[in-house]
Amino acid sequence: MCEELAHELDVRGLPPPEPFELIIGALQTLPAGEFLHVRIHREPYPLYEVLRDGGYAWQTTELKDGSFFIRISYGQ
């Protein structure tokens, strides 16, 4: 099994709209075929709409400490 190429982004504890700006900024430079791993303190519902419109795929996992881990890639 090959390891996926992932970029890490931790936006826990940042006030809106900083998490949103940082995630969008990171996605704009994300090379095709690579992943963005995001740690965030709230589930970012408005982001999902933007990801859907932009053709991204994502998977959200709630962690034990109440924060969320989101794995985003373009079109996969």
Binding site: I24, L27, Q28, T29, E49, V50, L51, D53, G54, Y74
Partner: peptide, 8 residues
């Protein structure tokens, strides 16, 4: 660079 639109 990809532009990601914010749906307003």
């Amino acid at each position: 660079m990809k532009t990601i639109p914010l749906n307003t």
